[in-house]
């Protein structure tokens, strides 16, 4: 991975919505999701983003059976006109650039 380039994607996993099935871990092409060690309020070990390497491909989102447990963000291409979400507003988000 080119350390100089920011990650194209960013993951948010709501650990309280996760049931720890691990399908996202299996689905993730760059393998940047793992099952965490602590239990969430339902008693599941929730999936967590390892904090770097997300490509924003969205495959984990579709593989996840929970409606809103995973949110996938993509780095805004400044040439595009999409309304961006400033990084700081992505609650709980972690990007490789901040590490």
């Amino acid at each position: 991975m080119d350390k100089l380039k920011p990650d194209r994607g960013l993951l948010k996993i709501d650990e309280n919505e996760c049931k720890g099935c691990g399908l996202c871990v299996e689905a993730c092409p760059p393998k940047v999701i793992r099952i965490g060690d602590s239990l969430n309020h339902c008693g599941y070990r929730a999936a967590i983003y390892i904090g770097a390497g997300c490509t924003g491909c969205g495959i984990c989102f579709m593989a996840c059976p929970e409606p809103g447990a995973i949110t996938v963000f993509r780095l805004v291409d400044r040439r595009a006109t999409a309304v961006p979400v400033p990084h700081a507003q992505v609650e709980g988000a972690v990007s490789c650039a901040s590490n």
Binding site: P6, G58, P67, G68, I70, V72, P84, H87, S95, A97
Partner: peptide, 20 residues
């Protein structure tokens, strides 16, 4: 390399609106 605050991410895959 830009700082974290300069990076902007947009939600690409999120809970569909057809869900409550």
């Amino acid at each position: 390399m830009s700082s974290a605050m300069d990076l902007e991410y947009t939600a690409a895959q999120s809970k569909p609106k057809a869900f409550y």
